[in-house]
Design a binder for these strands. Structure first.
Lengths: 333, 333
DNA sequence: TATCAATCTGAAAACGTTTTCAAATCAATG
DNA sequence: CATTGATTTGAAAACGTTTTCAGATTGATA
């Protein structure tokens, strides 16, 4: 019941060895005679000694902690990634410091700096946009940083993603093949490379392949919120769209519900296909067809990659693209 | 571009003062002449000095980091709490180490111990059950621990919750008042005090108040999964239930969809009411009526409470009960 | 101008580990 | 029974801060 904290020195004294030896057995160093090891282990047990990770971090310059920057854990897309990250981190004996950035540029660099000051061994960044300033900060540190489910068009940091352009292209082709001439592209902010550069490119390519002219009016740039989706029906209808590709599941659910509530039947009169395959796709009615992304795996692979970087192990590919699929459910014909 | 890390000592030398003085200005200590302060600040800026939080933690015995144990961030109930926690933590300059426990007893105590070894200043625990062993560990440390959205029937640790019994009682009364004689109680494991002790109590009380005898057959103990909910229709129908109270939103969505898919109209032929008011309630059709819980606030208040505990500030109430409400949507008449 | 209190500053000791380096021990060999 | 090389060990120096305590400086007062 005593609360005085027991240190390595106490163990050393009690076991009649030096701190160095205690340190060795705690760290599983092999250069210690079995008899001594046992003696030390017994004392550790008796005294209920628990190494102070902070002191250890100072001495060894390793904290076994990694920073994770995420726009919002409340978003299923990101929480799925985060879960994959934490599981692999745990597997490799790391803990994660999780911080929400709200995609706020300023908060992102500020949070990055506090993470660095806490001497994390590595960082996983998830975010919609990498500003110049952030990129500068990334460059300035030698702490490894990997991007998960997030693209930087300058491709400086290692990253784990799917091929967004190809995925959207396939979605759109799919829709066009079934006769949709006017497919809306409903996305988050176009200033985010993932939308404005990759996904939009896929959309345009599919149009081009089908010989359909690009129409600016079919691009709906939103904030990716469910609520926003619900309000889109009038605009979509008056633009003459007969189908929509959405870049976010909540947004897609909003669109679908907005349509349905306005009496437009999905998928009969309007098809919807979404992009993240979170479990929400199964919960709404009709169930939403979606690009399938291995969300958990994106996080997991990113963390695994980071462990290699932190150990200076060789890494064969710095830009991992995981496979995606297309899952037909009930929101498409 | 140089990567050698600059220490407080470098700043001291460059500014021609002692480390103590640099430390003072970094920590905003007032006992330093404005002129010296400026000189030091300039050097800090010039050298781009960033204090090492690990060394600081060792010297000051404060890490400005708190541990957060959660069953699964992927669950919206918990991610909402986590978000509230992180926001308030950030406000008070703390970071959170987030760990998923999967409600695994063993993992919970193990994770608690690594958190303590990392010298977190406090811990917020979310979990379904506090085993005896865990309670022992809680007692053994003097690091403050608060429970968020989680109940321990022995009420040893400070906690933030709503009155689950009263809320369920109100839900059930509501259903009974509209003529439902057979209301099913679909819950997570009854061994969890929140279900078996509190919510069930509220359910029974409502029955008692209405003079309806308790029927074991109307209690459906599940794993709280969406999928499980979808499979419940046959059992619910054959038990003669005309309404269900569910303790989890995903579970409730499953029940509702299962009913609907089987041709049972909600709410006309079967009413459903749920308990967590996550945004899922608005996304499914019909929208689900629910107890409203201030999820974000539960996390936020828990974190605020923890800051007080960490600063040895007086705390007036150790068991906070936040207000709940009842939100009628479309899954009830 | 001497005195006193208040204000500022620095030297050095923590904080609890890891790590380096040399010394001690041990076993086997010639 | 010395000699050698491997195996175990311990002393002490990091690691980069905070904090304590005493000393130096300042400004006002008598």
């Amino acid at each position: 019941m005593d609360k005085q904290t027991v240190t390595i020195y106490d163990v050393a004294r009690e076991a009649e060895v030096s701190m160095a030896t205690v340190s060795r057995v705690v760290n599983g160093n092999t250069n210690v005679k079995p008899a001594t090891r046992k003696k030390v282990l017994d004392v550790i047990d008796k005294l209920d000694y628990r190494p102070n990770a902070v002191a250890r971090g100072l001495a060894s310059k390793k904290t076994t902690t990694v920073g994770v920057i995420v726009p919002d854990v409340t978003n299923m897309y990101f929480s799925s990634l985060a879960r994959g990250i934490d599981d692999i981190a745990a597997m490799y004996k790391y803990n994660i410091i999780l911080t929400n950035s709200d995609s706020d540029d300023e908060k992102e660099v500020q949070v990055l700096n506090t993470l660095l000051s806490k001497q994390v061994d590595g960082i996983i960044f998830m975010g919609n946009e990498i500003t110049d300033q952030l990129r500068e900060e990334f460059k300035r540190t030698k702490t490894p940083i990997v991007l998960a489910g997030s693209v930087d068009d300058q491709n400086i940091n290692p990253s784990v993603n799917i091929n967004y352009a190809a995925a959207v292209q396939e979605e759109v082709k799919n829709l066009i093949d079934r006769g949709n001439k006017r497919v809306a592209f409903v996305c988050g902010p176009l200033k985010y490379a993932i939308n404005g550069k990759y996904r939009l490119k896929g959309y345009k390519q599919a149009l081009k392949d089908a010989g359909i002219p690009f129409d600016e009016k079919l691009i709906f740039e939103t904030d990716s919120k469910y609520k926003t989706g619900t309000l889109l029906q009038p605009a979509l209808s008056s633009a003459g769209a007969t189908a929509a590709v959405a870049t976010d599941d909540e947004l897609a659910a909003g669109i679908m519900n907005g349509m349905t509530d306005a009496g437009v039947l999905v998928p009969k009169n309007f098809e919807v296909i979404t992009s993240n395959d979170t479990k929400l796709t199964e919960m709404v009615r009709p169930k939403m067809s979606s690009i399938t992304q291995p969300l958990y795996d994106i996080g997991a692979v990113a963390m695994r990659l980071l462990t290699k970087l932190m150990n200076d192990e060789p890494v064969n590919e710095k830009e991992v693209l995981l496979p995606y699929g297309l899952m037909k459910r009930e929101s498409t014909k």
